[in-house]
């Protein structure tokens, strides 16, 4: 039995706890949050211990896996502590808030004999993994260009309003964009340089938006739109176009939604769009991590992958701040 300690009982912690509860060979041992009542209300559902300090969780001898679901700036220290304590570690994206701390994570991960993965869950979303498989099978010829869009309303009402603090979250291009940057690297390989414009540094309360252009070493190029500027309570919007020498793959979550439910009292703006699917991407991600532990495999997302996605994201906000293209791909 793999015994799990979850650190952070916010939105992602809840999703991960639900996934762990569905894994036969795993058991959630403890749920930790600096806000005691949050830890307790989630612990009640899964009948686990609670803690308010991450190091208390990590030090426990009855824990095999640490799952870190805290805000970004707390990732690196807990990953490093967990790895050094001999725990298998899965951490929400991005791997760290700075490249220096991400480098330190990579250094430690190389020294220890446990599994570590950053949870770039997009790779487990069927619309994205199917696209990757199709591209690998040559469906669009050589992939050369991509357009990505992702976003919705501003993530308000979170702990300490941490998303609105650029020094913590990095803004939308870092927190949300890192998903697409990892996916683009999965398709195109390493990036060469980045240019971006964004609201991130303009201090507009609860609005962020960014447009990024990424050039890859393969000469491929991509355009990424990330928004946290849609009106509250509007649905998330996700889409992509992947263009190759012999075709194009497109996806748009608004137009490919297979289920629209209009109940009395709802209007065009409030009816719900759903896309039910039996394979939960978050569960798929956790199952993958468990299988890596059991079968002693390298996780799909390496520490270097997570570093490179963060590097692109940070280059984006640096470019947006300076109005200059920023080179990426430096030595780790």
């Amino acid at each position: 039995m793999l015994r799990v300690g979850i650190i952070g009982a916010g939105g992602m912690g809840k999703i991960h706890a639900d996934c762990w509860s569905k894994i036969k060979e795993a058991k959630i041992q403890v749920i930790c949050d600096i806000e005691k009542d949050k830890a307790e209300s989630l612990a009640k559902i899964y009948n686990t211990d609670t803690a308010t300090s991450s190091s208390d969780v990590i030090k426990r001898s009855d824990i095999d896996i640490v799952d870190i679901c805290t805000p970004t700036p707390f990732h690196a220290d807990d990953i490093i502590l967990a790895l050094k304590s001999g725990k298998h570690t899965i951490c929400e994206k991005p791997i760290a808030r700075t490249l220096e701390s991400a480098k330190e994570v990579i250094r430690v991960a190389k020294e220890v004999d446990v599994k570590f993965m950053t949870a770039h869950v997009l790779r487990f979303f069927p619309e994205f993994s199917t696209a990757k498989n199709l591209i690998d099978s040559g469906a669009i010829g050589i992939p050369r260009m991509a357009r990505m869009k992702r976003g919705g309303p501003y993530p308000v009402g979170k702990w300490n309003d941490w998303y609105s603090k650029v020094e913590m979250s990095g803004g939308c291009l870092v927190d949300t964009g890192v998903h697409d940057f990892d996916f683009l690297r999965w398709i195109f390989g390493d990036a060469e340089r980045v240019y971006a414009s964004a609201l991130t540094w303009k201090n507009i309360l609860h609005k962020d938006y960014g447009l990024a252009t990424i050039r890859f070493k393969s000469r491929a190029m991509a355009q990424v739109e990330i928004t946290w500027a849609h009106p509250p309570k509007t649905p998330m919007k996700v889409g992509f176009e992947l263009i190759g020498t012999e075709g194009m793959l497109t996806y748009d979550n608004y137009s490919s939604t297979p289920l629209r439910i209009m109940k009395e009292g709802e209007t065009f703006n409030t009816f719900s769009m759903e896309s039910p699917i039996t394979e939960d991407p978050y569960l798929g991600e956790i199952e993958h991590f468990v299988s890596c532990i059991k079968e002693n495999k390298e996780p799909l997302i390496t520490p270097e992958d997570a570093y490179r996605a963060l590097e692109i994201a940070l280059a984006c906000i640096e470019s947006a701040r300076t109005n200059r293209p920023v080179n990426v791909g430096g030595e780790i």
Binding site: R144, M145, Y195, S197, K202, L211, T213, R215, R219, A220, M221, Q223, E225, I243, G244, T245, N323
Partner: peptide
């Protein structure tokens, strides 16, 4: 801007991503 000939065997550019910042700070691609 980033531009190149990536999709077709032609002498001119066939892809372009043009980023524009306006005098009032509004930006566009």
């Amino acid at each position: 801007a980033e531009g190149d000939t990536l999709l077709h065997n032609i002498p001119s550019d066939d892809v372009g991503l043009v980023s524009v910042t306006f005098e009032n700070g509004i930006f566009a691609t």
